[in-house]
């Protein structure tokens, strides 16, 4: 029984892998392209720092980030996003619900979330395989921006954990949003709002430590900053000790929350769902 199940999952994973490898050329090109906004960010922040007045010998900082810190931060958010971003997941689920493709999960002995998860894992695995070249190249070229070098082992373990949870959080968060399609047929504007919030409050655009007062507290209440900001800040040693342990637990809490939320939404969603045609 278990063997049969493992074979099923393995077959699905293999099909997804092969499907993904077809577009490897597109992938490699797209990965290099993705670093282009970083180039403008580097120039922007260099110019911003150039205009800051310094007092004495202290290095110039913004929200305790030096200029190399900023650049290292942006590069690290690229890694976070490589784990947490799920292009087309929510919109894909919503589309499947609208056009009735979701039927196949209802009549075949396949769990929809599990199937999609395997698809994403294959997608990510191929992505890392292709992207590791461009990523390594950019990071070697930019190694000078990592002022304190590699972090210690504990930080590294915490970093890897936060990245893995960023993947899970990204998946279940987007899946939950996609499930809203059971209740509203058109979710594109909702997805736009999500994307907007994600872009600014995940820390993709700037480190959220920059936000003043209440804004920062608000953003820290949202799960979004675990998708990009948190892993990067952990790597840079901005979050340490009890804060780090607390942060990892909260991240895990959000993963579990959305894991349950996606299941519950699917459970009640299919009761509302009516499929027509063949």
């Amino acid at each position: 029984m278990i063997a049969a199940r493992v074979t099923t999952w393995w077959t699905i994973l293999r099909i997804c892998l092969e499907e993904r490898l077809v577009y490897r050329g597109d992938y490699a090109l797209g990965t290099l392209m993705r670093f282009m906004p970083i180039v403008t960010q580097i120039f922007l922040w260099t110019a911003v720092f150039a205009a800051i007045e310094t007092t004495g010998e202290e290095p110039k900082t913004i929200a305790k980030y030096t200029l190399p810190n900023f650049i290292a931060y942006y590069l690290l958010t690229m890694i976070s996003r490589a784990f947490s971003s799920m292009p087309g997941l929510a919109s894909g689920i919503a589309r499947d619900i609208r056009d009735g493709t979701v039927k196949k999960y209802l009549i075949q002995p396949i769990d929809m979330l599990g199937f999609l998860m395997l698809g994403r894992m294959a997608h990510k695995a191929v992505y890392y395989l292709v992207a590791i070249g461009p990523f390594a190249l950019v990071f070697v070229l930019c190694r000078g921006y990592f002022e304190s070098g590699w972090p210690d082992t504990t930080t590294m373990i915490a970093y890897v954990l936060s990245l893995l949870m960023a993947f899970l959080l990204g998946f279940f968060l987007e899946a939950t949003i996609g499930m809203i399609g059971f209740w509203f047929l058109e979710v594109s504007s909702l997805l736009f709002v999500y994307m907007l919030f994600n872009f600014f409050f995940s820390g993709h655009m700037f480190p959220i430590d920059m936000l003043p007062g209440i804004w920062r507290d608000l953003v820290e209440l949202l799960p979004l900053h675990y998708l990009a900001y948190f892993p990067a800040a952990v790597f840079l040693g901005k979050i340490t000790g009890p804060d780090l342990v607390y942060g990892l637990w909260v991240q895990l809490g959000w993963v579990v929350f959305f894991m349950v939320a996606a299941r519950v939404a699917f459970h009640f969603g299919v009761r509302r769902y009516s499929g027509f045609g063949g």
């Binding site: 922007l44 110019a47 911003v48 720092f49 150039a50 205009a51 800051i52 913004i62 929200a63 907007l196 872009f199 600014f200 655009m205 700037f206 920059m210 936000l211 003043p212």
Partner: peptide
């Protein structure tokens, strides 16, 4: 949101680039 980002930048600096 973009405007907010630039306001955030200008809270930390007076100009983008020195003497530009």
């Amino acid at each position: 949101m973009n405007l907010g980002f630039y306001i955030l930048i200008f809270q930390n600096t007076d100009s983008i680039g020195l003497d530009t």
